[in-house]
Amino acid sequence: SIVTKIISIVQERQNMDDGAPVKTRDIADAAGLSIYQVRLYLEQLHDVGVLEKVNAGKGVPGLWRLL
């Protein structure tokens, strides 16, 4: 499923980069989806406690990390 793919992308990127959070844009590119589509999935995963959003604010790139 797309959700499983997104989780594995975040996991893979974090492992490659010493646990650093992953940008929404990088996840979207790797999943082959638009940034808006991916954001909806990321928000859902956040709501159920799978991911945390590391930063927030208007015009700030979203950074995500697995919990």
Score class of each variant (00 low, 15 high):
D17F: 15
E12M: 12
L67A: 15
R25K: 14
G59L: 05
L51T: 01
M16Q: 10
I2G: 02
Q14E: 05
V22M: 07
A20Y: 10
I2M: 12
Q14F: 05
T24Q: 04
R25T: 09
Q14C: 05
K53W: 09
G57M: 05
A31I: 14
V22T: 04
L67W: 09
Q37Y: 08
V60S: 14
I6V: 03
K58D: 13
M16P: 03
P21C: 08
V38Y: 00
H46M: 10
R65H: 05
A31F: 03
K23M: 08
G19V: 03
R13C: 09
A30K: 06
L45D: 00
D26E: 07
S8A: 13
D18Q: 11
E43P: 01
I27Y: 13
I7T: 02
P61A: 14
D29G: 07
D18F: 12
I6Y: 00
D29R: 12
V22G: 00
A30C: 06
A31M: 14
N15L: 14
V48W: 15
Q44H: 15
K23W: 05
A20G: 11
G57Y: 06
M16H: 10
G59K: 06
I9N: 00
L45F: 01
L67R: 12
M16I: 09
A56L: 09
V3Q: 08
M16W: 07
G32D: 15
I2S: 03
V38A: 14
V3A: 08
L33R: 01
K23S: 15
I27H: 01
E43F: 06
R39K: 13
T24Y: 01
S34R: 06
H46C: 15
L33I: 08
Q37S: 07
E12W: 13
I27M: 01
P61Y: 14
G62Y: 15
S1R: 12
Y41P: 00
L40K: 13
K23T: 09
Q14G: 05
T4Q: 13
R13E: 03
K58Y: 06
V54A: 04
V22N: 00
L45S: 00
L63K: 08
I6T: 00
V54L: 05
D17M: 15
I27G: 01
G62L: 15
W64S: 01
L66A: 04
V50Y: 05
I27D: 02
N55F: 12
K23Y: 05
I9G: 01
E43W: 10
L51P: 04
W64Y: 02
Y41F: 09
H46S: 12
D18K: 11
L63W: 09
T24C: 04
V3C: 14
N15D: 10
V50M: 07
T24K: 02
K58N: 13
I35Y: 09
V38Q: 00
W64L: 01
E12C: 14
A56I: 10
Y41L: 10
I35F: 07
D17H: 15
Q11V: 09
I7Y: 05
A31L: 10
N55K: 08
D26Q: 05
L40V: 12
D29C: 08
I6H: 00
G19H: 06
I6G: 00
N55D: 11
Y41W: 08
L67K: 14
N15I: 12
K53S: 04
R65E: 05
R65V: 11
E43A: 06
S8E: 11
I35R: 04
Y41S: 01
E52T: 05
P21E: 02
S34L: 05
V48M: 15
E52G: 07
I7C: 05
T4I: 13
D18W: 10
R65Y: 13
E43L: 06
S8G: 10
V48P: 00
L42F: 01
K53F: 07
R25D: 09
V48E: 13
T4M: 13
V60Q: 14
L45H: 03
K23E: 07
R25I: 09
N15Y: 10
E12L: 10
K58S: 11
G49K: 03
V10P: 00
V10F: 15
L42T: 15
A28N: 00
I9M: 03
R25Y: 05
G59S: 09
G62T: 15
K5V: 07
R13A: 07
V38C: 14
K58V: 10
P21W: 15
V10C: 05
R39D: 06
T24M: 03
V54P: 01
D26P: 01
Y36P: 12
D18T: 07
A56Y: 09
A31N: 01
Q14Y: 08
G57I: 06
R39T: 14
L67N: 12
I2A: 04
D47H: 14
P61W: 12
V22L: 04
G19I: 03
L40E: 08
L42G: 00
I6W: 02
Y36S: 13
I7H: 02
I9K: 02
W64E: 02
T4E: 12
G49Q: 04
D29A: 12
D17Q: 15
N15G: 09
V48K: 13
D47C: 15
N55G: 10
V22H: 01
G62F: 13
S8L: 12
L66V: 11
K5W: 09
D29P: 01
R39F: 09
R13D: 00
L42S: 00
G62R: 08
K53N: 14
I2Q: 04
A20H: 11
L66Y: 13
D18A: 11
E12D: 09
V48N: 11
I35K: 03
V60H: 12
S34Y: 04
S1C: 15
G59I: 03
L33V: 05
V48Q: 14
I9Y: 12
K5N: 06
I7L: 09
D26R: 03
Q11H: 11
L42R: 00
D18Y: 13
A28P: 00
G57V: 06
Q11R: 14
